[in-house]
Amino acid sequence: MQKSVLIKLSEDQIPTVVSYSLEKNEHSIGTEARASGLKGITNVFNFKKDLGQSEKEFTRKKYWIAPSGIHDRDTKVLSAKEAAKIFIEKALGSHAVPGKVVVGVPAIPDPSWAERYRANIRDIFTELKMEQPEFFHEPLAIYNSYKKASQKRAALKQKEDVLIIDIGGSTFNSCIVRSKKDGNIHRSGSYSVPLGINADFDGGSKVDQLLLEKLVSQFFPIVGHLLDVCYAQFGVQENPRAIQYLKKWSCMERRSDEPGIVR
């Protein structure tokens, strides 16, 4: 039997953000991509929620990258499919993948969303000429990590009911994971899936947006007016030029070493 191998991805490949470097003439992901936001580059994030949408929405180009910091001819527009494909290819490109890749399925209670998610991910792997992946419920993976994070917990051989609360960039979900008597997860049966899933497509990015709006309205009244104008006339989520102005002003009172409000 082939031994399972865990590919240790560096922290530079987390979180799920995609950007583009004009200097390197290539896309970047993770921490490097997120850091580009502090340089005024509009990057791609919060696209995970579209991975379970219809093919039309999954392939719709609506995510902007402005590598030069302004909306001009260098601006690149990606679909959720293209962004996910770039991220997967970059994340796994430097590793010899042994056997199957396991992809986590978010704890979304809508079964049709989950099925479209699997189908869309399979489509990406096909285009990358990679073997079709296996799928695993994200809360179960979280529980396994929780067990292995502490030797004391790993040694605890008893049934557990664990509340999992997962706040991601684009999702906020909770559920219960019930383990077997030996503390391991169920591989089959009614307890092999998360229980009582409750989820919403408002994650950390929504908090970022609310903090940005608070910052702008409290410290920059003029830009607060611009925010209203951008929403009313341009649509902040759809217009990269509006985002550029908001990023420029919102970053003035924030040190570069502080956690980013704008990504």
Rank of each mutant, 00 (worst) to 15 (best):
S19Q: 04
Y20D: 01
Y20R: 00
S21V: 01
L22G: 13
K24F: 09
K24V: 11
N25Q: 07
E26F: 04
H27F: 09
S28G: 10
S28L: 04
S28F: 10
I29P: 04
G30Q: 12
G30S: 04
G30L: 10
E32I: 08
E32D: 05
E32W: 02
E32L: 00
A33P: 03
A33L: 06
A35Y: 13
A35S: 11
A35Q: 15
S36D: 09
S36V: 06
G37Y: 05
L38K: 08
L38E: 09
L38A: 12
K39A: 07
K39P: 01
I41V: 15
I41H: 05
T42C: 06
T42P: 00
N43L: 07
N43A: 05
N46F: 06
F47E: 12
K48T: 06
K48A: 11
K49H: 05
K49I: 09
K49M: 06
K49A: 12
D50G: 14
D50V: 12
D50K: 14
D50E: 15
G52F: 09
Q53Y: 08
Q53I: 01
E55P: 09
K56D: 13
K56V: 15
T59L: 11
T59K: 11
R60W: 02
K62W: 11
Y63N: 05
W64R: 05
W64C: 07
I65F: 09
I65C: 08
A66T: 08
A66Q: 00
P67V: 01
S68V: 03
S68G: 05
G69N: 02
I70A: 14
H71S: 14
D72L: 09
D72Y: 06
D72M: 03
D74P: 12
T75L: 03
L78Y: 08
